[in-house]
Design a protein around this nucleic acid. Structure first.
Lengths: 256, 256
DNA sequence: TTCGATTTGTTCGTATGTATT
DNA sequence: TAATACATACGAACAAATCGA
């Protein structure tokens, strides 16, 4: 069979691409998922159905799905099907929350929102969020209690365009993690984050809020969270008191 | 064909295992690699040869190798072969060195060894290195210059049993990264690290060495590096002045 | 430079095993 | 139990990269 053509009225893939067929399929599936029509936790078509949709063999479909599973975008379950990763609170905590107690236990943090503002992006934030300077954003300040003590302060900046109609009430009254809110309310899946860590002294207001001495060393974490195709979703600055907690970076060199 | 039997005098795999055949093959290949007979960068047998060695189909071999490639243990090159990951200085820096300049550039650090001692393990170190309390270890103190300024202090503890005959002269005169030394001189591949990060004030001697004020916030990184099958190889404590450099944790949720 | 042998990469397809409903 | 869906294993054919004659 010659190199690349759609068969039997199947979906036309990117066509004249110079990349392998399974990459085309992967991209097509990714677009299906990120179109916003799919709910988190929902099943995607079966492998056999995808064969017919794309007009490829099951091996090619599996290869495409393999990569999305490796990226935690999809979850496969034998006998059940393949699902858009649910990002359950528990899962979110395990994947994107790497602040743990010094003895290694994962405390579930209690988040309290200190302020929720409508604001305009400065140049630097615009660059991080891939929006225009001056675009509307939400600025949200939170404090997190871990083990009963205030241990973390953070500031979140997100584009109002990506999260239209988000209100303080809705944000505060959510019964899930913030990333789950992005997913369930706006159909935005956070699939990766990039953290930059520094050590800085506590300033006056931070010291007061975390009930620690002025100038005490804190861990500053600057995070950008991205969704499919590396589109930035959220900028976040976290300040952690590492007296009783620490940041863990388990495993390097992917895979297992 | 029925489930599990060796054919044609092929290597007997783990036998009565309840895991998939490709996992057996993966483990067998892993043992080949970690036996110390293989040099980093050396080619492993071709897929066809492995078929004969293990008496399985090429698909099964490929599946096993796929996982090892995903774990950066092996590297495949079309037309050439499959190789034990070389851990070149450049590669080591990119994979296991996540201290970068604030503007994102990767400075190549200049390492100077301050001291090299033969010592005995305390209980905690023994636990981290999976050796016995009181076993002999090397304790090595280094300072790293980045951009001409002293930016990092670290202490390394490794088992004398794992690295027999290592001398200060040899350690200091190496022309490669420390992990490359482990690999090239002792056949030990570091394949993963686990980092724990805290923010702490500089003590007197640290402040003096890094030429910073006493009490200045530093980033403390406690690392355990492991080789195949999660066997610990090295304990390391790093202190980083984050005025001009920072710790980056790119990408969560594996793969790409 | 060309060509052929070698080696991995991609795609296809089939058969059977195992988990779920 | 039966149907469905993913998991494992097999193997064939061809493409693309590499290397040496």
């Amino acid at each position: 069979m010659s190199t690349r053509q759609s068969r039997r009225g199947a979906v036309t893939l990117t066509g004249q691409s110079r990349q392998p067929l399974y990459k085309d399929v992967k991209l097509a599936i990714t677009r299906m998922l990120s179109s916003g029509e799919m709910q988190a936790g929902e099943a995607i078509p079966t492998e056999k159905q995808l064969c017919e949709i794309f007009g490829t063999s099951i091996g090619t479909i599996r290869r495409a799905i393999d990569e999305l599973v490796a990226e935690h975008v999809l979850i496969r379950q034998q006998g059940r099907g393949t699902f858009l990763a649910p990002y359950s609170p528990d899962r979110m905590l395990n994947i994107f929350f790497n602040i743990v107690s010094k003895d290694g236990r994962r405390e579930v943090p209690i988040v309290q929102t200190l302020s929720f503002q409508n604001d305009f992006s400065d140049a630097e934030t615009a660059k991080e969020l891939a929006i225009r300077d001056g675009d509307e954003i939400y600025k949200i300040h939170n404090i997190m209690l871990m083990g009963g003590e205030p241990a973390v302060l953070d500031e979140i900046r997100i584009s109002s365009i990506l999260f239209p109609g988000l209100t303080e009430t809705e944000f505060v009254s959510r019964d899930m993690t913030i990333y789950d809110l992005y997913q369930n309310r706006f159909g935005i899946n956070v699939i990766r984050t990039s953290d930059r860590l520094r050590s800085i002294p506590a300033d006056v207001s931070t010291a007061k809020r975390l009930n620690i001495p002025l100038g005490m060393p804190l861990l500053e974490i600057l995070r950008v969270a991205v969704t499919f195709e590396d589109r930035p979703v959220e900028w976040r600055r976290t300040l952690l008191n590492t007296e009783n907690f620490e940041y863990r970076n388990l495993l390097k060199s992917d895979g297992l």
